[in-house]
């Protein structure tokens, strides 16, 4: 509604008191763009719809059975969330939400950082040095096809039940794809640039530090952002299978008591964290590598 209004007023406003009579022109839908406020409204709309649908469904079920645990009310979930966040656990004295979050993020970040380091070092070597590419590219391609969850039991057996196995699962799950994506970007650096660097007297090592490394950074950040999704999957799975704390552990633990009032806020919390990590990666990349995101390109 807002969108169409703005659209037609724009057209009318283009010639408020023009000398010539204008025939009324109906723009095609593809040419109608929402104003900023309309865009925000349209963006929020699906979220609102989901919340309203949930609230109605929950109220319906609770009206029939006030003890229903499957669709707790939003107020109920908020209460539980506050308890987890701000009341110490009776048994351990910990604030469960924060200890869970801290444990999970520690594993996630370790996994992401190790994968990123692998992606950068291996990706540049494979993408830039033909000898390394011949030796390692098929191997990395093969490793990336292993279903990571299939090796989780091996990791538990080899690395024990602690954090190491969980971090290893994340690394095995996302590093090979990240390596491949970075190495592909590096190998796509135009040959002209490599030759130009050679005519400027660059050694192989200097070409890596001044040409391949800086140009591999934006693809690395893209790979990190794309790797985060799978990283969460492997983290939650590993925690659900074997852990003593963590966001995934909590969800799988309270599932036994049908505690949807814990599970749903935890899922929302994980989603929020994932969004914030993604956002910070995106903004960091834009700020640090301005050359890759030019304003006024092709001036």
């Amino acid at each position: 509604m807002t969108a169409t209004d703005t659209g037609s007023s724009d057209i009318a406003g283009a010639a408020p008191n023009g000398p010539r009579r204008r025939t009324r022109h109906r723009t095609r839908i593809v040419n109608r763009k929402p104003s900023r406020s309309a865009a925000i409204f349209l963006g929020l709309l699906p979220f609102l719809v989901v919340v309203v649908v949930y609230a109605v469904a929950s109220a319906d079920r609770l009206a029939v059975n006030p003890q229903d645990r499957l669709l707790p009310s939003i107020g109920q979930m908020w209460e539980t969330f506050r308890t987890y966040a701000f009341t110490p656990d009776q048994r351990t004295g910990n604030y469960l939400l924060w200890t869970d979050t801290f444990s999970s993020l520690k594993r996630l970040f370790l996994g992401i950082v190790i994968s990123g380091a692998l992606a950068l070092s291996l990706g540049i070597s494979i993408g830039f040095l033909p000898m390394v590419r011949a030796g390692l590219a098929p191997f990395v391609a093969a490793i990336s096809l292993i279903p990571p969850l299939a090796v989780l039991p091996i990791l538990f057996l080899l690395l024990g039940l602690g954090d190491t196995a969980k971090v290893a699962l994340i690394v095995i799950g996302i590093a090979p794809i990240m390596v491949r994506s970075v190495s592909r970007s590096v190998s796509e650096i135009p040959e002209e640039q490599i030759i130009k660097a050679e005519t400027l007297g660059a050694s192989t090592w200097q070409m890596i530090t001044r040409l391949a490394l800086p140009q591999a950074m934006p693809p690395l950040f893209n790979a990190l952002r794309l790797g985060l999704g799978p990283a969460w999957i492997f983290l939650i799975s590993a925690e659900g299978i074997q852990a003593t704390d963590g966001l995934g552990y909590r969800i799988f633990l309270v599932r036994r008591y049908l505690a949807m009032d814990v599970i749903l806020p935890y899922v929302a919390w994980i989603t929020l964290i994932a969004y914030l990590i993604d956002l910070s990666l995106r903004l960091t990349a834009r700020r640090m590598f301005r050359w890759a995101y030019p304003k006024g390109a092709g001036l």
């Binding site: 002209e192 640039q193 005519t199 800086p214 590598f289």
Partner: peptide, 15 residues
Amino acid sequence: PDRGIVFQRYSVFPH
């Protein structure tokens, strides 16, 4: 470095 080159495209470093 004894031979300089200018290509039609991609001659300068984008970063």
